[in-house]
Design a protein around this nucleic acid. Structure first.
Lengths: 138, 138
DNA sequence: AACTGATCTAGAACAATTCTAAAAACCTTG
DNA sequence: CAAGGTTTTTAGAATTGTTCTAGATCAGTT
């Protein structure tokens, strides 16, 4: 954020083997410079445009997926038909407010999942998603 | 399945306040007469058509949602852009094979989730979904 | 049988996402 | 620093899964 605001982001992209293009840098800053967030592709695209960054929606989708594959983001699926991307890649869980569509992080240490069953057919566990759906009382 | 194959299903629908129409009965039998299953709307519609039951896709969607609201089904969201409906409404969890898109039930007693955090703002917990994403080794 | 509200339907509409092929940007190398 | 080859971006079309709509049909009375 100081003199050379991009160096940190550039390094972060380089580390995972992604070329630091103008679009990826801009999106990375929107995503990672503001603490943990949950965004949809449309949301992020809207932010970018508002901020004066010219980037197409297709690129936002591409970038979000590349970031996810590189482990910079985590995709959270809560509603059929909408994908959230979570900038918090630490092990944690989620509350999902069904009414508002809002996601809230739950730190991993606030939940204990004991004795996971072994995956079938010698499959490898990729991710454990615990989503607690809540309805806010009116 | 014997003499009067529909009576059980009719009662089941009546209990939850749904009129036992031809379409609902047919779909209910496809869903509930074969043990636990995970289906998408398109799948179920395909089955119905194949079985010679004339029912529109819109009705399949309506019916699946009505059944879900009535507690006869449970909706499982694993992939953005596709909804599964689970005929197993007992408390349980899921493996999700990312490659094949296959869902596998995990009985509740094979996992222990201890100390759920309290929901924010006095919200009420509606459902707890634990999904373990696995990748089958080639 | 007639009536009335619930249900069903085909097809249009919709929203989120992916695809496509061409243009632009990036990073060498000479 | 220009040329060249590759990667990335882009606008717009295409696709997918789902919902909506308005009219037709059905279920359960009276």
């Amino acid at each position: 954020m100081a003199d050379r605001p991009y160096t940190a982001v550039i390094d972060r992209l380089r580390e995972v083997g992604l070329r630091p293009t103008r679009q990826r840098l801009a999106l990375a800053r929107l995503l990672f410079d503001t603490g943990d967030r949950h965004v949809t592709a449309e949301q992020l695209h809207g932010e970018a445009v508002t901020t004066g960054i010219s980037v197409s929606l297709a690129t936002v989708y591409n970038t979000l997926h590349q970031f996810t594959e590189s482990g910079l983001l985590r995709e959270v699926v809560v509603e059929a038909g909408r994908s959230y991307f979570d900038t918090n890649i630490a092990n944690h869980h989620h509350f999902f407010e069904t009414k508002s569509g809002h996601l809230i992080d739950i730190p991993a240490d606030q939940v204990t999942i004991g004795s996971l069953p072994t995956a079938p057919n010698g499959a490898e566990i990729e991710q454990v998603d615990l989503i607690i759906r809540v309805r806010r009382r009116a």
